[in-house]
Design a protein around this nucleic acid. Structure first.
Lengths: 123, 123
DNA sequence: TGCGTAACTGGCCGCATGGCCAGGAAATAA
DNA sequence: TTATTTCCTGGCCATGCGGCCAGTTACGCA
């Protein structure tokens, strides 16, 4: 078989901060079984920044707002979301409005993008 | 001074594949200056999966469609996108329609979510 | 020369979306 | 009790959105 060849794990280093990237590159540069990806090379995994600035504070969303948000991220229309949650379209609009406020979004697409960016939802 | 304390870089391991996660944990387990994050601990960076399955084939999007998609992900309305790209709202709708087809989405929100999921755009 | 594709524009139309107004019901805390 | 919060519902309306029709221009390719 070929699984005992112990193929190298290729890691892509996707860090913006030059200092941190350098330190990681130095630390990971010569580990047997591990290799950093060349630019453009496809890697098995990537090292990405976990920037705390992006999540200022977990935005205070109510449970219902999270429900609506999740269904929005699935592309659901207000009507679909209403059916799914067993509430009226008006109520869905109400929650969507609150979400736009809290997430500082211009529309439902922006709201989903913002929420995904700050980790409120997993796309 | 405190810089000779050699502060550890805390790395979160966020890999779904257990086999790959184990191998990475073993490789990174005892490197001086590096430490894997405890569950819940906030890390400076994270190792995430670069799963090629998610991008079945780079969906054939034209340059203009990518332009429109990027602005959609920023929450731009058709009118805003039209102004940004210097084209008419009709043309924007035309490209949006193509995007909905190609990305198999029910609406612009769904399109952005799909595109983000398969790595066509970076949120 | 013709062919296909990408980009672009227009009109039309039905529905969705989001903002505004108003209100009610229930649970929890002061 | 009162007050607060969350959740819920309705009407109204201007605008956005997406699907449908049709057309033009420009490019590269056979």
């Amino acid at each position: 078989m070929s699984e005992d060849i112990a193929p190298e794990i290729v890691l892509a280093l996707e860090i913006d901060d030059p200092a941190l990237a350098d330190r990681l590159a130095a630390l990971l540069g010569n580990i047997a079984g591990l290799r950093l990806a060349e630019p453009g090379e496809k890697a098995a995994a990537a090292i990405v920044t976990r920037d705390p600035r992006i999540m200022p504070e977990d935005i205070a969303l109510t449970q219902r707002e999270l429900d609506v948000l999740a269904l929005m991220a699935e592309g659901g229309s207000n009507k679909m979301i209403a059916r799914q949650l067993g509430i009226s379209v008006h109520t869905v609009k109400f929650h969507v409005g609150s979400l736009l406020d809290k997430l500082d979004a211009t529309g439902r697409t922006d709201a989903v993008a913002h929420a995904a960016r700050r980790g409120v939802i997993e796309l």
